[in-house]
Nucleic acid binder design. Structure first.
Length: 221
DNA sequence: GTCTTTTGAGGAGTTAAGGA
DNA sequence: TCCTTAACTCCTCAAAAGAC
């Protein structure tokens, strides 16, 4: 910036040629010419009453010539990601089909992360060790081949976890009937070595009786 | 002094690999 | 699948060189 100020001084105060100014300032005459043009365009007159920062911003105003790429709709992406089996890769491919000149996958992921960070609405829940167990049938139904019949059969995966430690228990069943559900709980409690504290529904004793008749493991309450 | 072309720096974006 | 990192490419722009 001192060079630009000196160039303007040598031009207006001393009256040197572009070549002479270039030699004096140790720069090319084209550079001298360019700075004088910019100064004229910005209506900068000698003597200069501006700070270096102001002079810089007037000589080199910010340009906006960079290629503008279509931005992905992150609200839509965020909504779609909640759906089953939808991935960022699939959504990016869909975006690129609509906008072939759009951003690449890494930037797509970066924007998604930033969107999530900026729109994070969450509640921190404190779990006391040994107090709770979370249970559910997990995700997609798997299958296995019965070695006796050679036929493929569905396998429903029961998953329980102690939320304080994330300690899991997993067991597969052939169905999701209430008998399997209760048996899964019994096995989980045995696995963890815990004691259930539950409210017993009216039909529980009838279910336990049926489990006894079918020789399945029963927790005696 | 002007115009065109070339060069180099710096920033933004892309790609690929590897670990969690 | 997510995330980080390093190497790379591409683009813009200032500066310089050379022709006229």
């Amino acid at each position: 910036m001192l060079k630009a100020r000196e160039i303007l001084r040598l031009k207006h105060e001393v009256g040197l040629s572009l070549r002479e100014i270039g030699q004096a300032c140790n720069c090319g005459k084209t550079t001298v010419s360019e700075i004088l043009k910019r100064a004229e365009k910005a209506n900068i007159t000698w003597p200069i009453q501006l700070s270096d920062k102001q002079l810089m911003s007037m000589l080199y105003p910010p340009t906006n010539n960079r290629k503008i790429v279509p931005e992905p709709d992150m609200e839509y992406v965020f909504y779609e990601m909640k759906k089953k089996n939808v991935t960022l890769m699939l959504l990016w491919e869909e975006y690129k089909e609509k906008h072939p000149d759009g951003i690449m996958y890494t930037q797509f992921c970066e924007r998604y992360r930033n969107f999530k960070k900026l729109n994070k609405i969450s509640l921190h829940k404190h779990h006391k060790a040994g107090e709770e167990m979370e249970v559910d049938w997990a995700g997609d139904t798997l299958s296995y081949v019965d070695i006796n019949t050679g036929k493929s059969k569905p396998a429903y995966i029961f998953v329980s976890v102690l939320p304080a430690s994330h300690y899991p228990f997993v067991h597969a069943y052939g169905d999701t009937k209430i008998e399997s559900w209760i048996d899964a709980h019994v096995r989980a409690y045995e696995y963890y070595g815990g004691v259930p504290k539950i409210t017993i529904p009216d039909n529980t004793y009838r279910i336990i009786q049926r489990l006894r008749l079918s020789n399945q493991t029963v927790l005696i309450l």
